[in-house]
Write a protein that binds this DNA or RNA. Structure first.
Ligand SMILES: [Mn+2]
Ligand SMILES: [Mn+2]
Ligand SMILES: [Zn+2]
Ligand SMILES: [Zn+2]
Lengths: 141, 141
DNA sequence: GAATTATTTAGACTATATCTAACATGATAT
DNA sequence: ATATCATGTTAGATATAGTCTAAATAATTC
C-alpha cells in the first residue's frame, strides 16, 4: 500500500497524518480480517513507535467519523474494524463471532413512506449463520 | 398479551415458564422500543417478584437462543432486545443509538457461490442515519 | 521561534456483561 | 407424599471493553 496514498486520504479528511494514526490505518488496509481494537493496538506496537491504548481508540473513532474505517458491532464481543475499500457485505458467525466479507450486491431501499422524517445514510446487509470453520463441528452435534 | 400464549411459547422451546423468565418475555412483548438489559431489569423489578441482574441476563440469553427474542448490537452502546413478532428491519440512529422498527420487505440472498461452505441462517438489513428526533438538530449545524 | 492547536499518554474510571457456588424451585420417580 | 434430579435463581465478585482526565508532546501557523 502506498504510504503517500494513506497520508493523502487522512489529510483529505482533515486528519493529521501522525505516526500513530498512520499505523492504525495502514494496519487495517493490510489486514482484512476485521481486527478488534485490542488486536490493532497490539499489532501496531510490535513496531515502533509505541502507541497508547487510548490513542488507538481515539484514532479508530476519528477514522470511523471520517468515513475511512467501518466499525462492526458484534453481540457480546468486542467491536471489529475494517478499512472501507471496496463495498461489501458482512457475514457474522453465530458461534465464533468471526466477521467475513461477502461480495457486494445492491440492496433495495425501503419505501420512502416507511422512513418518515428519518434521514437515511446507508443500508447495511448482514448475513448470519456458521462460518466455514464452525459449520462442520456444529453439524456433528 | 395472553399469559397462556407466553407460557406456551416458552415451553414450546423447552424453557420452563418461571416468574422471572415470564416477566422478561412479557415486558418485551409489551414494549417495542428495544430496551437494554438494564432497562428490562429495572422494569420487571418494579413489580414483584424481584429478579436479579444475573437472571435477567441469563433469561435474555436463553430467550435469544430459543429464537423468541432478538438481540441488536449497537456500536459503543449496550445491546438492545426485542421480541420476535412480525418480521421487520431495523433503523439505528447514528447520533443517539435508538433502534426503530422498519416495515419488512424481502431481501435478495447472496449468490450461493459467494457463501462457500458457510451455513446461512438469516439476512439482516440495518438502516443507518438520523432518527426523526435527531434529524432536525443535525440539519442546523 | 512564539503562539496556537491537535494529538498522545498513563492510568483511573465507567459501563456492560459473565462467572461462581450456594441455594431454591419445579419435575419425575418411587 | 417424599426423595431424587435437573433446571433456574441469587449476590456479589470478576472480566472485558471502552472512555475520561489532565499533563506532556508534536504539528502548524503567525
Ligand atoms: Mn469487511
Ligand atoms: Mn425491532
Ligand atoms: Zn465460526
Ligand atoms: Zn437519534
Amino acid at each position: 500500500m502506498d504510504p503517500e496514498a494513506i497520508r493523502r486520504s487522512l489529510e483529505g479528511r482533515g486528519l493529521r497524518c501522525t505516526a500513530q494514526r498512520y499505523a492504525v490505518m495502514a494496519f487495517l488496509m493490510e489486514h482484512t480480517g476485521h481486527p478488534t481494537a485490542a488486536e490493532i493496538f497490539e499489532a501496531v506496537n510490535r513496531a515502533d513507535p509505541r502507541s497508547s491504548r487510548a490513542t488507538t481508540y481515539n484514532n479508530l473513532r476519528d477514522l470511523v467519523q471520517a468515513g475511512l474505517v467501518r466499525e462492526v458491532a458484534v453481540e457480546g464481543r468486542a467491536a471489529r474494524f475494517d478499512a472501507k475499500g471496496m463495498r461489501h457485505h458482512h457475514f457474522i458467525c453465530d458461534r465464533c463471532g468471526k466477521v467475513e466479507d461477502v461480495e457486494w450486491y445492491d440492496v433495495p431501499r425501503p419505501a420512502s413512506g416507511s422512513l418518515g422524517k428519518r434521514i437515511l445514510r446507508e443500508c447495511e446487509l448482514i448475513f448470519r449463520g456458521l462460518c466455514s470453520k464452525c459449520a462442520p463441528r456444529q453439524a456433528s452435534r
